[in-house]
């Protein structure tokens, strides 16, 4: 028999207190897209549904100290509509256009998207290439978790049972261009088969720095640091982009599931990486 409680904290202290008290049994609900599916399917039968959707402390999209700070309860649509985001990080707005569909974008949050530690969370590669930080809070204080340390294993993140994600911090890049490419099984809403994000700082076609992240090709969303190293310092052309991109297949460990085979995921990762790099360079048709 299902047995749920509902609690709407009035402020952050109340939220942190109940999270500290109930730990995993406190199920945070901002948009609710995943949680409500688990309840309907019966895989989740009890707990306290902690409604953070309208908690002022988790709202707000602002620029602060060179960072874009996004409250954990901000929806994808509000992030896309934010003038600050448009001005400071249009890459984020553009990339979120492929997130689920317009209805789901109206309720989903970035924090909710990454909180489950899913390898196909569409915002994960974005946050990775942007060197983002996840701000977690508990009754004992706050800590900033570099996104590189955030994902631990399949379905597991660095967030402790008594912690709550309160803010996503993204350093506003001074230079460079980004591109996010997602391969799904249809054009409308679909889970990613593979997704690739690239942030490229180039001088002409010369690579000063590059950050590459992928989703759907390992138990975690991951940075392809070896491939990045290969790209760094190279003068790029259509041909060597494709060759360099192949390196990424050595850094990933895709599996075969109903959405795609491991071999395809691997090979198409390199293709998507090439595409993303070319687009960053303005080479794509």
């Amino acid at each position: 028999m299902k047995n749920f409680k509902y609690f709407r904290p009035k402020n952050l202290d109340e939220l942190l207190a109940i999270k500290n008290e109930l730990k995993e049994e406190a199920r945070l609900l901002a948009g609710g897209s995943n949680l409500l599916v688990y309840i309907k399917e019966g895989s989740l039968k009890s707990g306290t549904l902690v409604d953070i959707g309208s908690l002022a402390a988790l709202k707000g999209i602002r620029e602060k100290d060179g960072y874009l700070e996004i409250g954990a309860a901000e929806t994808i649509i509000d992030i896309m509509a934010s003038p600050v985001v448009s001005e400071k990080l249009p890459f984020l707005r553009e990339s979120l256009r492929v997130f689920a569909n317009p209805l789901i974008r109206n309720i989903s949050t970035v924090a909710g998207n990454i909180a489950e530690g899913s390898p196909i969370a569409d915002t994960a590669p974005l946050l990775l290439v942007l060197n983002s930080e996840v701000v977690a809070a508990s009754i004992t204080g706050r800590r900033n978790i570099p996104i590189d340390d955030f994902f631990i294993s399949l379905g597991k993140t660095e967030i402790k049972a008594n912690e709550v994600i309160i803010t996503i911090r993204i350093p506003i890049p001074e230079t460079g261009r980004g591109k996010f490419v997602k391969l799904g099984l249809r054009k409308g809403t679909s889970c990613s088969v593979v997704s690739v994000a690239v942030w490229l700082i180039a001088n002409g076609r010369g690579v000063e720095d590059i950050r590459i992240a992928l989703g759907g090709v390992a138990p975690l969303p991951l940075r392809a640091v070896k491939t990045e190293a290969l790209f760094r310092g190279k003068i790029l052309n259509e041909h060597n982009i494709g060759e360099l991109a192949l390196e990424v297949t050595n850094e990933i460990t895709p599996i075969t599931d109903v959405r795609g085979g491991a071999a395809y995921r691997s090979e198409v990762s390199a293709a998507l990486l090439s595409k993303a790099v070319r687009e960053c360079l303005g080479m794509e048709e």
Binding site: Y6, G32, L36, V37, K40, I77, L103, I104, N106, I107
Partner: peptide
Amino acid sequence: SKGDCGACTVIIDGRPVPSCMTL
């Protein structure tokens, strides 16, 4: 009942939302 079809869409505060995905 899983946010996949949009048949239950209502407008909440001006935005279309699948009502199965909201408490």
